[in-house]
Design a binder for these strands. Structure first.
Lengths: 333, 333
DNA sequence: CTGAAAGCGCTTACAG
DNA sequence: CTGAAAGCGCTTACAG
């Protein structure tokens, strides 16, 4: 295995010169640099990251820490796309990102700062964190740049990449109303999720936008559970048989798909008798007919922006901040 | 940041003793070890991986190298689930896995051995590799343990985790026949893909199993392309209007979904007039009615086994070899 | 512009 | 059972 020494020997210079030449220090004669670069290349020399981490202070090692990876359930589309986004940013930048699974349990055992020291990390992206996770608290006081995906990070080093759930849900609700459905049924997510509250706020804003009174609104608490959504929507319709013309405004696509199924199973026609809208923008919707309107959260973009911001923060070229990724309304049929 | 020195000082011993105590060497007095462990814990000490990599020969750093991550398309379910599987193996094992995107282009620029040296890797899992990728050739002669997911790796250090595509496709074809469909239409993938050839072989075996002659078989070349499958199936049926009772045996679920759509769009009934079978076991099928029969490739298990095998090989507890992950026939409606 | 030298935080023969 | 010391492969003040 070829080390910096081999390059130095071959080039007839000292290791310090090799190091400076390869790291683009400007106090190296151009001809020397050229020679060293050529030799390094021909030898297939690659500096050991470990040695670098050990000797250098300024390092740019980043990692994505994902909570909930260890389980045996299929990977959700959001996380997958976010990973894609991360990687598309560093692609070609000669960078590398490590991925670590962090359960709530392990967060309790090892502090984030310890973790970062152990793996020489100078910044992390955090995904899948839940309210109440230990790292959330620690981040408030840490000096390691952290970027939260879909979770608000506090503290002077905490940055966040979010969807503006309030506005997004307001948009989709307004869309339903514009389609002519003035009586709304909110298919709601679970209360513990921060997004539920935001989306609910957006819902209420849309009500105000359209002067819709609470009497024209019902709420089905479905906790982001498909089966529950199916059951609740079904029994809701059965209960109020004659009351067609309602829009089921759902807080997730999966609940929307379940709602649509319930409606069709009862013999009603989608988009006509009832309207269903979703939220998330998952692939599945491309295969369900008629097309359900939804909000695309643009997870690839979130991953990309998260990575970009993290790098900039580490390089001191940007300040930690919250970035809202533009959502996109996808119309239905 | 607390280092091994801090622990040593606090414990009143030398750093060598701390190192040996924490690494479970057996030449340390039990009381000393206990004291050191307690102090290390209370101080929140974590050994620096970089320092370890540099000083120690035996290391167990592993990484997953994924080709095709840099693109902007959504992450496919297979890769996502495979990642889940990997992580579920190392979960709780106090291990960590790095993830690197490797395009074909970058493979040409940096040899695998150089890559592994740069990041102190003692073994890698390779996913998404295509026939003809540079690393495939290099692996034949490398001494770094490599595990290929869904790709056959050669050489004394090459291991592979595969689906037995021949048997799996034979199974699903037999299933179609058992359902009473003796006239088969193979909806074929692209020729360049290794799996296409294997699945075709399985298809032919099933023909033999059931004494089906070539005259009762048609082949639609659809290249794993949904639109092509839709078009081809549609025009095929239109051409032979009266010939109902055929089974479209598809080499992928997505093509199967397209085929099913084509059939329904023509006004025929699925499972009755025509049968459609898939291959892969993607989530989408859970939402399409009637349920399309398929083969579940069990990607989570593949990731899990890949990780397990790699670790064992590195520890010299198992030899590199090919493992076929059991596929599962999922019946349709 | 270049080199000698210290040092990063560990591990591991070696000596006792 | 324990410690002193060398060494892993780099980076970076410092001297010239």
């Amino acid at each position: 295995m070829v080390s910096i020494k081999d390059v130095a020997k071959e080039a007839g210079v000292s290791v310090s010169t090799v190091s400076r030449a390869l790291n683009d220090y400007d106090d190296v004669k151009e001809s020397t640099r050229k020679k060293i670069q050529d030799i390094a290349k021909s030898l297939g020399y690659r500096p050991s990251q470990s040695a670098r981490n050990l000797s250098s202070k300024r390092k740019e090692n980043v990692a994505i820490l994902i909570s909930g990876l260890g389980s045996n359930s299929p990977m959700d589309e959001f996380t997958g796309n976010m990973l894609k986004g991360l990687n598309s940013y560093i692609q070609g930048k000669n960078m590398v990102i490590a991925m670590y699974g962090i359960s709530s349990k392990m967060q309790a055992k090892q502090k984030l700062s310890e973790f970062c020291r152990q793996y020489s990390l100078s910044g992390v992206i955090l995904a899948g964190l839940k309210l109440g996770d230990p790292y959330l608290e620690e981040i408030k006081y840490t000096d390691i740049p952290c970027v939260g995906i879909d979770i608000k990070l506090e503290g002077k080093m905490g940055a966040s990449i979010l969807t503006n759930d309030v506005e997004a849900f307001r948009d989709i609700t307004n869309y339903a109303v514009k389609k002519g459905f003035f009586k709304l049924v909110l298919v709601r997510g679970k209360d513990e999720a921060a997004v539920t509250l935001d989306r609910y706020e957006g819902f209420k804003k849309a009500l105000k936008d359209n002067d819709i009174s609470d009497r024209d609104v019902d709420i089905l608490n479905c906790k982001f559970d498909e089966e529950l959504a199916y059951k609740n929507v079904k029994s809701y319709i059965e209960k109020y048989k004659k009351r067609k013309g309602r829009a089921f405004v759902c807080m997730s696509d999966l609940m929307a798909v379940a709602a649509a199924r319930a409606i069709e199973d009862l013999g009603y026609r989608l988009g006509d008798d009832f309207l269903v809208t979703g939220f998330d923008g998952i692939q599945l919707l491309n295969y369900i007919k008629p097309r359900i309107a939804t909000i695309d959260q643009n997870m690839i973009e979130k991953g990309y922006e998260g990575m970009r911001l993290l790098i900039k923060i580490i390089k001191n070229e940007e300040e930690p901040r919250t970035i809202y990724i533009k959502h996109k309304l996808i119309k239905g049929e």
